[in-house]
């Protein structure tokens, strides 16, 4: 918790401690967390620092769909389910990811590596179907590309594991 407190304090110092900065702070706290979410402890610290109620901080964190108050995978795969993507192969892409990861949309893999979610339009309609994985967008997907994508992330993570 102390380590968390220091991290959050330095984020707030950088962004500012007025209540209007709440969303920016939540985005950054989530981004820096290993599990792509904002924990209850983090919300407590933030609400104290910004002098707002915990329920307000929680309310905002749960209103915006990019923010999560539940643990998520290190890689959050967001499948665009807006019409231009979803009508253009997005539905199949969802199925490829579900099959290859063995989870359905809304779930996380047991190893904590992947979460699968829907997202609204990500502005890549000319490269439909597209998904967003953390901050990166991947377009023109098909079965092979989905498999390659998941493979490459898994390999990258294995390499990282060895270095510990």
């Amino acid at each position: 918790m102390n380590c968390l407190k220091n991290d959050i304090e330095s984020i707030i110092e950088k962004i500012g401690n007025t209540p209007d900065k709440l969303i920016e702070i939540l985005i950054e706290v989530q981004r820096q967390s290993e599990e792509n979410y904002i924990s209850k402890d983090a919300l407590k610290i933030i609400s104290k620092e910004l002098k707002i109620s915990l329920s307000k901080a929680y309310g905002v964190a749960s209103f915006y769909s990019m923010l999560s108050t539940k643990k998520r995978g290190r890689y959050v795969i967001q499948i665009c389910n807006s019409a231009p993507c979803y009508m253009n192969g997005g539905k199949q892409v969802k199925k490829y990811f579900e099959d290859i990861l063995g989870i359905t949309v809304g779930e996380m893999t047991d190893d904590g590596l992947f979460s699968l979610e829907f997202t609204g339009c990500i502005g890549t309609c000319d490269k439909a179907p597209a998904v967003k994985i953390n901050d990166k967008v991947y377009g023109n997907l098909n079965k092979e590309k989905v498999e390659a994508l998941v493979d490459s992330i898994r390999k990258e993570e294995e390499v990282c594991d060895f270095s510990f």
């Binding site: 209007d20 969303i23 920016e24 939540l26 905002v60 915006y64």
Partner: peptide
Amino acid sequence: VRTGAGAYVCGEETALIESIEGNDG
């Protein structure tokens, strides 16, 4: 420069203003 966090309604100008003020949109 300010950002939203994934809410379509925040494109509506009064919801956008709420969001800049740090509230639900």
